[in-house]
Design a protein around this nucleic acid. Structure first.
Lengths: 343, 343
DNA sequence: ATAAAAAATTTACGCGCGTAAAGTTTTTCC
DNA sequence: GGAAAAACTTTACGCGCGTAAATTTTTTAT
């Protein structure tokens, strides 16, 4: 092991006693060489710390082993968690994931896609900003780079979409709330950041119609990704106006709900499902912090694992099929109701 | 613009009417070529969408334009925010940042450093896990790759450290709390994840001695990075035992405090600085969610911007000086007290 | 205008590796 | 044991670009 530093594959091949082309073959797929050969190479690998130069490798390989992961807003722990799962699964499959966050900024999203192009990734897992996204740019990107969309769907773009079934979220919360108390009012942003919000509102209207209750949708102002503050401001305003006709508020998502709960607290309202409470609040997403709100938040949980697992599976399939799939599939996973103290 | 797709710099040089070596020079530094030449190249760039192949570029360049950013736990919005700032500043300086999260796992941290090596980055901005980090691996890494540590210091490692002045956090909160009510008890993990926690406890003890009050440190069990749950469990236990001799609890950090507030709520205790409250709770970090807790959390804020700005400035200096600095500097930024409703 | 300086061009090589083709050795199998 | 198959070695080329050296052109300065 006291040998000098290995500078390239040529030198490493020499010390391992195997020819360079065979060593190259080994690094591309260790099982493609004879067992005895593999053992020699791996023995040499123990003694010397050589690793192929990824730049030289990627320059010559038709397809890199890179996978791009793009999320809209990494400061949202929901995306941090899902990105973490996806990252790990990609590594386990022998790929090199690179994580990007658009930070809620459509221009940054475009820049990321641009920079992703030059990475020549084998595949991309992309959760777009949604409404604010530059659709034409994304369309071109998807045409050039094998892409799987997740979390937020853009009609017809990418080779597949994997996400959560918004209807399943809302039907469970509305059903639960209406069975156990007054009918829920729906609390959302007037101009929601992504299409999931619209699906949730529609599901709410549909559910209320189905069970024969009067729907009440409250749309609050505010743009951007600072959902908590938007929820808080909107909540303060509506609560001051005593706008809610029932004692139950269903928020479009947990981050909005976190802000709304802060507003309730500031207004001196007691939130909860127990006697003596002024208001029930529920929501959707099962945000990592939702169990630490006061009171803990009743919500509907994403199947994080299913979404990230299936997304990675799909992009792997996509890569194996050479970058195109026969037809664009949309996979939605159902939600799970999480009953806590707020409703 | 109707020309065929440009395949390499040779072809691009042809359509721009400039020789390839000069075009290469341009891409390395647009200001290194004559104005008229730059304009010709940029005109051609408008018409054709050519970008140098980064793999070929990085293979030949002695130093890449890559910068690695490593944070211990991206699901913590604090790190997500600081990473975002650092990313942007790197881009503005003409570098390509790549973000990694150790997700609280020391083995993953080692893998990341390993994979970072092969990226041959010009510089690395590294916030280590802390106590759990494999110090010998990190030491070797820092010896090979120009690295600036931030947030969490490891004695002597890296070319510089930039972080927050823990004493400044604690002195401000202790001073404020002791002036406005009963003496604060200190609430922390028994085996904290990083060295900042130890510095904060020491600062607490020192402050209490200075102002002549009896210190009360409560150490709770739990390992890992699920601080909220650890704080909640520890809080439930201590509150049930009525362990706190005063009505004021100072948490080591906001995530612990968020869990502690949940515990208080569950125990039916009213937290706040107003009359009729049972307990005052304060903390440190100004976590992005701390203004949405119920009640909103009185805390001491990091100077996010200063830390991220200075970190990037330092790594740029480091790169310019060829990867080594004359002497290792430690820069600490003071905290700012944020008075909210919890104390 | 002329010399000196600056910038661009031409030519050429090398980076580290993928990969193809032809030849050689080893393994497998009846 | 012998032939076919499999795996390996040798040789060679190319990927796209950085970069050096020598030469030519353009700009700047006197």
């Amino acid at each position: 092991m006291g040998t000098r530093k290995i500078r390239n594959m040529e030198e490493f091949a020499a010390v391992s006693g195997i020819s360079r082309p065979t060593v190259s073959k080994y690094f591309n797929d260790p099982d493609s060489v004879r067992r005895s050969t593999r053992e020699k190479i791996e023995a040499a690998l123990e003694e010397n710390d050589y690793r192929p130069n990824i730049y030289a490798v990627n320059q010559n390989r038709k397809l890199t082993k890179n996978i791009g992961i793009v999320v809209p807003y990494l400061a949202d722990p929901f995306f941090a968690e899902i990105a973490r799962n996806i990252e790990q699964r990609c590594i386990d499959s022998g790929f090199r994931p690179t994580l990007f966050s658009s930070h809620g900024d459509p221009e940054l999203e475009v820049e990321i896609l641009d920079s992703l192009r030059s990475l020549k990734p084998a595949g991309v897992l992309f959760a777009p900003l949604g409404r604010a996204s530059d659709r034409s740019v994304i369309e071109k990107f998807c045409a050039d780079v094998p892409t799987v969309l997740f979390d937020s769907n853009l009609e017809g773009m990418g080779e597949a979409f994997i996400g959560s079934d918004n209807h399943s979220f809302v039907s469970q919360t509305v059903d639960y709330l209406s069975r156990t108390g007054e009918a829920p009012c729906f609390f959302e942003m007037r101009t929601p950041a992504n299409p999931n919000a619209n699906k949730r509102r529609d599901a709410y209207l549909q559910m209320m119609a189905k069970i024969g209750l009067e729907p009440n949708v409250f749309k609050i102002d505010g743009t951007g990704w600072a959902f908590e503050e938007i929820g808080r401001q909107g909540g303060l305003k509506l609560l001051a106006e005593k706008a809610f006709p029932t004692d139950t508020v269903l928020c479009s998502n947990d981050r909005l709900a976190i802000g709304f709960l802060a507003a309730c607290y500031e207004m001196g309202l007691k939130v909860g499902r127990h006697d003596g409470s002024d208001l029930r609040v529920a929501s959707h997403d099962d945000h990592p912090f939702s169990r630490f709100t006061c009171p803990s938040l009743t919500t509907a949980a994403h199947d994080y694992m299913a979404v990230s697992d299936r997304s990675v599976e799909t992009v792997m399939q996509l890569i194996e099929s050479g970058g195109r799939l026969d037809k664009r599939t949309e996979t939605l996973f159902a939600a799970r109701l999480i009953m806590r103290d707020s409703a």
